[in-house]
């Protein structure tokens, strides 16, 4: 009798565990499993771990790290050197020029990053 109950319990534990990250959702467990989880310490621990993970991740939103001290200066240098038509509506050739400029800027940022990394690795 006890063995039978243990086996059924362990199957339910497996069923609960198989829901994985979805366990963080309060309403995910169907009736019989919810009843089991309410009394099973192992399943409660599994649910608690996934809920804690979600809480910890969500709390990262309030944890802002300081930007590198040179960021503002780097952006300023780039926009002062930039001839993009600001203030006017972007039409036709201007749009093409802007996109080309943005692409070139992206490529140069990446190139500098790669060069820095290669230098650091050398």
């Amino acid at each position: 009798m006890n063995t039978k109950m243990n086996r059924s319990s362990s199957l339910k534990c497996k069923a609960v565990k198989s829901l994985g990250p979805n366990l963080a959702e309060a309403s995910i467990l169907p009736g019989p499993l919810a009843h089991h989880a309410a009394t099973c310490l192992r399943c409660q621990a599994e649910v608690a771990r996934f809920r804690r993970l979600r809480r910890e991740l969500s709390s990262l939103a309030d944890h802002i790290e300081p930007a590198p001290s040179t960021l503002v200066e780097r952006v300023e240098q780039a926009i002062w050197a930039d001839a993009a038509p600001i203030g006017a509506q972007h039409h036709g050739a201007k749009v093409v020029a802007t996109i080309a400029g943005a692409t070139a800027a992206a490529a140069s940022v990446v190139a500098v990053a790669l060069w820095r990394r290669a230098r650091a690795a050398a």
């Binding site: 780039a78 930039d82 600001i86 943005a102 992206a106």
Partner: peptide
């Protein structure tokens, strides 16, 4: 972090250009 600094810089430049 280093790449993130480049991404941040580039994002602000794109924002400046797209501001209108």
């Amino acid at each position: 972090r280093e790449l993130a600094a480049d991404v941040s810089q580039e994002a602000f430049i794109r924002a400046w250009r797209a501001l209108p």
